[in-house]
């Protein structure tokens, strides 16, 4: 199985767990029965198309909205009624953060820092300087990328055990994005921080995530380790004359104009592809995550 961090930092309770989560906005279903458990020390990348319900799922997991039905727990506590102790172990950065725009970056970090017992002011100051953010300018006057970085500093400086990031890289340039990924990766490796982040930039996810979850049309299509995903799934292409041999079990099935067929198939328990892959003319391609995502979500 995949390498897990040191077992000593395992706690019995998962940092995040949801069960049978259902939610809808004005009649249209956003989440239709999601079950997800985040293992301690894992870095889970949540991937899905725009409007797939990623943000809603994250917000429901953290108790920022009341789901229609289902339960969400954070460190074993009901997410909607978190105690101070659990809150201090958790940091969340929303998509395009806009909080406290009437404060300067330094004021905001100063204000928020007073509430966290393990706040690392040194880290906050250093990172503000390293990321070249004017500390005495009102947040309202910073660019979206700068505001996102300030909020990331806010989240990281509280030294959380669980870090939840909603599209953290959306407003960042490639250099800042790489730097953020480095920070996430090292925190996960050294402090055993559990991370959940949503993205639609697949290459980010492939770098740092240990697990990946596909959210499509309000359902979790798959949730497994990232290496396993790459090794286990492939695209089977069958020309028209043998398309009858297509296996019935497949994650997606697409017929092309010339009658040929593309399927996303899975290796069996012994690591073998379905039988049709061995027919003459058939072809199995290994899939990168992005291709796999496109094949499934299309």
């Amino acid at each position: 199985m995949n390498a897990m961090p040191d077992p000593s930092c395992h706690t019995a309770v998962p940092p995040l767990a949801v069960r049978d989560l259902v939610h809808c906005y004005e009649g249209s279903n956003v989440l239709t029965g999601v079950n997800l458990v985040l293992q301690p020390g894992s870095v889970l990348g949540l991937i899905g198309r725009n409007g797939a319900g990623k943000s809603t799922l994250i917000r429901a997991m953290l108790g920022l909205l009341q789901p229609l039905s289902g339960t969400a727990t954070v460190f074993g506590e009901p997410a909607l009624k978190l105690g101070d102790a659990s809150k201090a172990r958790l940091a969340y950065v929303p998509q395009q953060p806009e909080a406290l725009a009437w404060l300067t970056a330094r004021q905001m970090l100063d204000f928020v820092g007073r509430f966290y017992p393990r706040w690392d002011q040194g880290f906050a100051d250093r990172t503000l300087e390293r990321w070249q953010i004017p500390p005495n300018k009102l947040l309202a006057r910073l660019s979206p990328g700068e505001r996102q970085r300030v909020d990331l500093i806010r989240a990281l400086a509280s030294q959380p055990e669980l870090l939840v990031l909603d599209e953290p890289a959306a407003a960042l340039d490639p250099v800042a994005r790489r730097e953020l990924l480095r920070e996430i990766a090292l925190r996960a490796g050294e402090s055993g921080t559990t991370v959940l982040f949503s993205t639609h930039i697949v290459s980010d996810l492939e770098r740092v995530a240990s697990d990946v979850a596909f959210l499509h049309q309000g359902r979790l299509l798959m949730h497994c380790t990232i290496d396993e995903t790459k090794e286990r799934y492939g695209r089977l292409w069958l020309p028209e004359r043998i398309h009858y041999a297509a296996p019935t079990q497949s994650l997606s099935r697409r017929r092309h104009d010339d009658g040929s067929l593309s399927l996303v198939v899975e290796r069996d328990a012994n690591g073998a592809w379905p039988e049709a892959a061995n027919l003459p003319g058939a072809r199995v391609d290994a899939l990168g995550l992005e291709d796999l995502f496109v094949e499934i979500a299309e």
Partner: peptide, 17 residues
């Protein structure tokens, strides 16, 4: 009405009692 402004920050801020 903003989901990405102060609400999540306040909801998850420890120490408000």
């Amino acid at each position: 009405s903003c989901v990405n402004a102060e609400l999540p920050l306040l909801a998850l801020l420890p120490g408000l009692g």
